[in-house]
Design a binder for these strands. Sequence first.
RNA 1: GGGCGCGUAGCUCAAACGGAUAGAGCACGGGAUUUCUAAUCCCGGGGUUGCAGGUUCGAUUCCUGCCGCGCCUACCA
Length: 690
Amino acid sequence: MYRYLEQRLAQRLLEFLRGRYPEATLPAVVIEQPPKVALGDFAIPVFPFAKPLRSAPLKIAESIGAEIGSIEGIAEFKVAPPGYLNVRIDRAWLAQALARDSVPSETVAAGKILVEHTSINPNKAAHIGHLRNAVLGDTFVRLLRYAGCEVDVQNYIDNTGVQVADVVVGFTHLAKKSRTEIEALTREPRFDYYCWDLYARVSQWYEQDKQNLKARSETLHAIEEGNNETAAVAEMIASAVLRQHLETMDRLDIEYDFLPRESEILHLHFWDAAFAKLKDAGVLIYENEGKNKGCWVMRRAGTGVTLAEPKRKMRQGAQDYDSEIDDILTEIGTQAGVDLGAREISEEDQKVIVRSNGTVGYVGKDIAYHMWKFGLLGRDFGYRKFYRYPNQHECWISSVDGEKDHPHFGDVAEIYNVIDARQSEAQSTVIEALRGMGHNEAADHYTHFSYEMVALTPRCAAELGYTLSEEDKARSYVEVSGRKGFGVKADDLLDQLIVSAKGEVDSRHPELADEERQSIARQIAVGALRYFMLKYTKQSVIAFDFKEALSFEGETGPYAQYAVVRANGIFNKAGMDADDFAGKVASKISAEDFSQFLNGEAADEIWELWLASSKTSYVVNQCITTTEPAYLAKHAFQLAQLFNAFYHRYPILSEANEKRKQFLLATVAVVRRELIRTLAVMGITVPPVM
RNA sequence: GGGCGCGUAGCUCAAACGGAUAGAGCACGGGAUUUCUAAUCCCGGGGUUGCAGGUUCGAUUCCUGCCGCGCCUACCA
């Protein structure tokens, strides 16, 4: 509702200004939120209008407030020095709309959206870095779905890379296991943990003697080749580890629709199709000399002069974009002696796509894969059922020979790739390749959802028994490394959270059956973990520390869950059903009652709760446009915090004035509803008791 | 060397688009309801937003330079 009102206000303001000052070129109207509710609910800084209108900010604010006329849902305009026009929402109007839970119709962009996340190499157990990726990705999927978008979720599996080869080498050369022995191991519950250790051992083994690396290249070659014993073993291992990753993520309620694998990109010759198109478009250049002699190379993203990017940014950002900029940029290019059609790329700006031996690197495969995503490749995967979730949801996997009946993946309008910041150059290269082939539309709808890594604090590393170099000890964090077996495994962390939560539940609710306490503990653990991964903004490196991650107090998931449990407690005590009450709120409280109980300074505190409750869709929208789910966590925390203060200050069931009691119950019901929704988008459910 | 990012309270982090007195949590000190209540609430100390300039009515936010830190920069994936 808040978003709806903001849009309406912005529109009316624009109409008014255009009508009132037809000659003046006016800056864009910005609508902000005042620092305090007492000031108002929206704030419009009018400073930018002072110069074009040749008038003092306060005067302008005054005239707008006086002349704009009435707007439904807006109560009044108030001028505030040094130059703000503050807007008060009609509190009763908004409360009624919220009580009815009326959702203004929204237009959703047409076309399917593809979100790719998780993408763990299937050669070891998932660790906390992977958890951040999966939680961010899954939450973004939920955000898009909440906004009404149609979304496919993909988890890309690199099952033919060196990482898988390494663990195969571990089984064959170090553990010396036969195929049947390995097969038996894959059925063990923590096969991925076994691989975790083996992978670390293999890395050490390579370091002991560089000759050992021969085993790696032979194995890798055999895997890529396919149709042999080594490839079959690799496939068996990768599939088993993948299955365990899916189980791990399912513990956090994270599901996928499709698992495209590199092996099919290879065996279905996606690259051949892409290669031909890239050569035709002149994106790839054959290098005749230098260190990259005999390779097909591409210009590294971000090097050289390109006009497309700055122009696009200007178009999006500036309303007064002037086509003259076009000419200016071309002029600059000419003066600098840059011929945009030039084929020469300096050696350091070259990115090798096809090696001199004719094999393609991973960026090349990624380009082909992304052409497939946008339906630009002219080829498709085969599809096979791979994993059925307990809720019967089917997850498909790529296959050379697919099943006859299958859903259609790919060919989407927009994609989001949740991949950590270290890969931003590779991502940009793929985007530039699309642009180079003339697929600007696709490139514009390609978003690298970039985030920073999860690292360990030196203290945490010490707790886990790792010995650090003096240099590392001095750092504020140390990068995790699957190769070294250095990190916190996802399942271990979740197990630890569950144990910790279970202890709390046991002491608080000894009357419950153990099974029930276990289930509550799981919900709390998932809430804590998912919240923890979401509360940091994407570009912040999470320096992981057990103390922070295991906390259930303050700005945490359990804090927010607890607020809902408290709200439920009120209704339970009153012998009412919370959802049922929420559905009838609108008919129970008249506009006069709302008006009476929400207006006046004393009501500001409760109004703040209603106002915050109205912001869910506003926040969801903000999260999507900025690809930043952290705002959602902030919203949940704010709702919970306001509610807890309210809960403490206002006794509800003992309220003598019956109308006021109904109003207070309505407040609880609406906040509860919005908090449950917000948590659901974060993938967090609420236990019956805590 | 080049590219990207970061630097805010003792610690971990907020402050989208430049806006009103830079906010939370943790930690620390003090306090709270016979109630729907303690995974909670209230109060308190804590800050020259790395440094120096610039643009602006206004800068944590934009620009330039410097200092410090991280990541990327393979014919690995």
